[in-house]
Design a protein around this nucleic acid. Structure first.
Lengths: 346, 346
DNA sequence: CTGAAAGCGCTAACAG
DNA sequence: CTGTTAGCGCTTTCAG
């Protein structure tokens, strides 16, 4: 009907007389007319909705997720898109079917946050849904994966320590299967190598990315190492681990940064709540989310266009934003010079 | 077609022969058939999706929201519902139009989290959408509003302080227009009254619910009050404010709980990250979210049923779960006896 | 400039 | 037991 035309804003060539226009608008108001999203979606083959798939619920508030989500929400809303959240367990493999079941046209595209992907799943999902990943463990070939510069961040952190005179630096790393863990180790190695400090393999300590793990590793280190063998600084794989370290030290009346320097990773907001406030490497979480939105939307549009005119492909592959975002060192109060108990080796 | 019947699980009386059933299932698999949510929604008048409206983005990660969201996500998913998030600015009034525009059938119901509602908006929204609120500033008549026992929580907190021997207790309260602020003040008064401690009106200090406000209020208190006039304990309107207090004190080398006892409210997870860990009043955030889901869903079902058979109304108003959830005191390390500098007044 | 007609993918009622 | 029919509310040609 004419109604559709006027209610959706003038449709190009078709102009409507002012008389009927107001008549329609009034009627709509009187009838409390609301357009129906389902019907519109059915017709337009577009729901204007993005799906976010993430393992939100780690028992612990997932600040990391919240940061990205804020970026997504903001960007999506700015482009008139809704956002629906699919929360999965941390066992991605167990929830693959569930995710697939969301491929029923209720969202136009998906953003998978820090997914643990299997090759077969990637393939299946691609069949039914256009999607991008953020910090996937194994960036699947052919899928857009947004990432941060883990290697560079770790390098920055460790170099910061070295510049303060530290040479005995332990790295409390993360679970091997997680995204970015390998890269952070590489950055740690590079910084040491550059300073001609030999890498002590035993000082790269793997463990979980949670507070308890940080506390345990620190406690273990403190309890089993002779005073002269202790490191002077700890580079922690994330902020939670760093906070665990802080706790373990507090329990033993050790001070930061006087007795040990501590540096974290992520800059989730709890980093400024510790005492002393944590020096850490900030990830651009919001930007990550916003960028993810841009990228899926681009894919969706491209696909929609492709349906109509198969040509015009590869129109601007040069314009795509980089998929690796840079990180930033945030200097706060948890790093100082090495304690006097060690002579600073020149 | 028969297809619909078999793909949706046996439809009561209509049984399908095993032969055609497998034929259909196979064909579906071969064709990579996916049902279409929009079409189904259009027909069933039900999207199986809930909307969550909240002001998520306070610049600061909103742990409060995240807690509720987790509860919602879990409960919704358990009942086969999706969740889409509508993020609004903190100026609810400015976003009323936006919220209304989401009433287009894409969600079957809404949960408004800590909304600031105007009477006219409540009315309008009710016209187009079934919804419940969580901790609305002014629980609108006739709308389900979930709440926690703010009064009781404050009472618990202050009594805890009193039991430790404190009698000089300042309350760093919240913004007057926020939900629960009045109630917490009432709880504070009740606890004091019960202990026959006169209420010093100047000790109920209003202010924002953020860290900086806590720091400022504490600094101001410390800087403008003679030592003999100082309180021995601070009851903070939320955890962020408590953390601000902690910071202000740390800056002056004051210790907790030796010099002052501090108690918070919310138990957002950062409460255990402070040093000492914060004694606080825990809100059942997850439960709040889960309960909200139950309630909207019940309303939606009821409404859907009402369309068919107008009767049978008021079938079980007694069964509805209470709308006020109880809170719990979480004792950690930030409360101790009053400092020796004050004699404990009997 | 306006309205009639077709159809998006699905479900529900009803004949074969 | 199976297939046909008629919309759900909207958009989009395409004739009046």
């Amino acid at each position: 009907m004419t109604v559709s035309v006027v209610l959706n804003g003038a449709h190009s060539a078709t102009r409507v007389s002012e008389a009927t226009r107001t008549r329609i608008v009034e009627a709509a108001a009187r009838l409390r007319y609301r357009p129906n999203a389902a019907a519109r979606g059915l017709q337009r083959r577009r729901m204007d909705t993005l799906g976010v798939v993430a393992a939100i619920d780690g028992g612990v508030p997932n600040l990391y997720f919240l940061g990205i989500l804020n970026g997504i929400l903001e960007a999506a809303s700015a482009r008139g898109q809704n956002t629906t959240i699919f929360s999965v367990s941390h066992h991605w493999a167990a929830d693959e079917k569930k995710i697939l079941s969301f491929c029923d046209g209720r969202v136009d595209g998906m953003i998978l946050i820090a997914p643990v992907l299997s090759a077969s799943f990637v393939e299946q999902l691609a069949l039914h849904m256009t999607y991008v990943t953020v910090q996937a463990n194994e960036p699947p070939k052919g899928i857009v994966n947004l990432n941060v510069d883990d290697e560079g961040g770790a390098y920055l952190a460790v170099r910061h320590l070295i510049e303060h005179g530290h040479r005995r630096i332990v790295f409390f790393s993360g679970p091997a299967e997680f995204a970015g863990v390998r890269e952070r180790i590489a950055g740690y190695r590079r910084a040491l190598r550059e300073a001609a400090i030999p890498v002590e393999e035993a000082w790269i300590v793997p463990g979980g990315y949670h507070l308890a793990s940080g506390r345990e590793r620190m406690a273990h280190l403190l309890d089993t190492t002779g005073p002269s063998e202790l490191p002077t600084a700890i580079f922690c794989g994330n902020d939670a681990v760093a906070m665990g370290c802080l706790e373990a030290m507090a329990e033993r009346n050790l001070r930061v940064p006087e007795d040990f320097s501590i540096i974290g990773f992520d800059d989730t907001l709890d980093a400024c709540l510790t005492s002393p406030r944590l020096t850490t490497v900030a990830q651009p979480l919001r930007t990550l989310g916003a960028r993810a939105v841009e990228r899926v939307l681009a894919l969706i549009d491209q696909e929609a266009a492709g349906d109509h005119e198969e040509g015009e492909a590869g129109e601007s592959p040069a314009e795509v934003a980089a998929d690796v975002l840079s990180v930033q060192l945030v200097v706060r109060g948890s790093v100082g010079p090495p304690p006097a108990r060690f002579s600073v080796i020149k």
